[in-house]
Amino acid sequence: MAEIELKDVSFIYGAGQPYEIRALDHISLTIGGPAVTGFMGHTGSGKSTLVQLLNGILKPSDGQVLLDGKDIWAEPKKIRDIRFRVGLVMQYPEYQLFDETVRADIAFGPKNMGMSKEEVDARVLEAARFVGLDETLLDHSPFDLSGGQKRRAALAGVIAMRPEVLVLDEPAAGLDPGGRREILTRIRDYQRASGSLVILVSHSMEDMALYCDRVVVLSHGKLLLDGDCASVFSQYETLLDAGLDVPQITYVAAALARYGIDIGRDVYTVKYAAQRLSEKLGGGAS
């Protein structure tokens, strides 16, 4: 599995201008190992900036971004190769659809990689299957699709490049709960099937709890918390101070603790809470 390392990375927007903003402040972080890593933070915490550094859309003002131990900016002319290896799905990716058919749009990435026509076609079908896009839709105009289908088509456009690292910035934003679940489940299934590294950015604590193995919390451009879901969500005072939230069930657990039923602070899914509670109360697990 690929590994991304950030070494003391800072990023400043509009350096030297009247409105310069320090979006990231000396971040050091290694992402590998656990399959799905979640980035979390309040609006303006720097998470979108961070993901754009991972594939060289932005260049760090200071520090290094390493992919498998190699600085991605070592050869600036070959940054395109990095972008094929680290696929980035930006926020509201459906606004980047442009081609006449969904098929041609998904093929844009693989074509830029210089693949043969047969290979491109195979990749398009494979990517469409992963995101659950019906094959009959491939010859429609992307602008005739529904919102959820557009989102999936845009996602397929990146997955078709078979990146070693798939970075998704709020992939479920603006979708209804059903659409959310479906797209996030598909992303997790894609991770399991392809063995690639997935990085997910989200505000939603419930999504983080359900789909991520590791959670990284940013606040005002700095690293606030880093660890598995249980250890991050158990520090909910810190999260609340950072303008974030914790899953509803963590509140319930905290309230129960106040009434003398302590099932632990590291409860973040309903299933887990039910299990702990039944253990505590000595009943059967149901």
Binding site: R83, G87, L88, M90, Y95, Q96, F108, G109, V158, M161
Partner: peptide, 13 residues
């Protein structure tokens, strides 16, 4: 800028 970045991410040159 956003659209350019999105297409660059797909290898646009």
């Amino acid at each position: 800028e956003k659209i350019m970045n999105a297409q660059k991410a797909r290898g646009a040159d």
